[in-house]
């Protein structure tokens, strides 16, 4: 028996699948795939699946991680990949299947590409000024349900802002943002941007997940 890490992307209509939906969906996909997977013990047995870092509803992602436990050691990672490819629905694409290296608790950062539809002229500059502040305070609900003031600035590892023009979409501002992720200091880009105030409509794509050394999470 070994832990196997499935890397996949999530786009299109699948962006409307919440984290709970993904759990349910993957359980069924894996059952259909025929991959010999470990089931939890207990009365209602179900396939053991964990996700490294839940993705907010509405976000797309180029780097999603799901861990499963394969019980048949002769069933290779290539076979797992082929079996999953057959049953993944539109919008989900398996990119790699590898043996697990890092524990999910070692997730430290996540990188996002946030695309804003054309805004006011100085939007990019104002955004830049906002993110460059030494401290960005906001209120966040703790797990106990109380409101607590936190400073988001230390959670911003790095960011860059660029302008893009395409014939299809017209002008847009793209914010590339690396934020603390996982565990205690997880910061959702939506929370950060809510503190900025009114923004043009934006879409979020998670580009990468890193460990504490900013190495790609494997």
């Amino acid at each position: 028996m070994r832990n196997v890490r499935v890397f996949f992307t999530k786009h299109g209509r699948m962006k409307f699948a919440s984290h709970l939906d993904m759990n349910r969906l993957m359980t069924r996909i894996i059952r259909r795939s025929g991959v010999p997977i470990w089931y939890t013990e207990g009365f209602n047995q179900h396939p053991y699946i964990t996700f490294a870092l839940p993705l907010s509803l509405g976000f797309t992602s180029d780097y999603e991680i799901m861990d499963i436990r394969v019980i048949d050691d002769e069933f290779t990672n290539e076979q797992v990949k082929a079996a999953l490819e057959k049953v993944f629905p539109d919008g989900l694409v398996v990119t790699a299947v590898e043996n697990m290296v890092l524990k999910t608790g070692e997730v430290a950062f996540a990188e996002f590409a946030i695309t804003f539809k054309e805004g006011e002229k100085d939007f990019a500059e104002r955004l830049n000024a906002f993110l460059s502040q030494e401290s960005i305070l906001t209120e966040k609900k703790t797990k106990k349900g109380k409101m607590k003031e936190i400073d988001m600035a230390p959670c911003i590892k790095r960011f860059s802002i660029s302008k893009r023009f395409s014939a299809e979409e017209g002008e847009s501002v793209v914010l590339n943002l690396v934020l603390s992720a996982g565990g205690e200091n997880n910061l959702n880009p939506t929370l950060l941007l809510a503190a900025f105030g009114e923004t043009p409509y934006y879409t979020v794509c998670r580009k990468m997940i890193y460990d504490s050394a900013m190495e790609c999470f494997k």
Binding site: R13, S18, D21, L57, D90, G91
Partner: peptide, 19 residues
């Protein structure tokens, strides 16, 4: 369309594309 979907509750109801 997807932008509008994200403004309502349970957008998965309207997204389609199920297995």
């Amino acid at each position: 369309f997807e932008k509008l979907l994200l403004s309502v509750q349970k957008p998965g109801r309207y997204a389609g594309g199920e297995l």
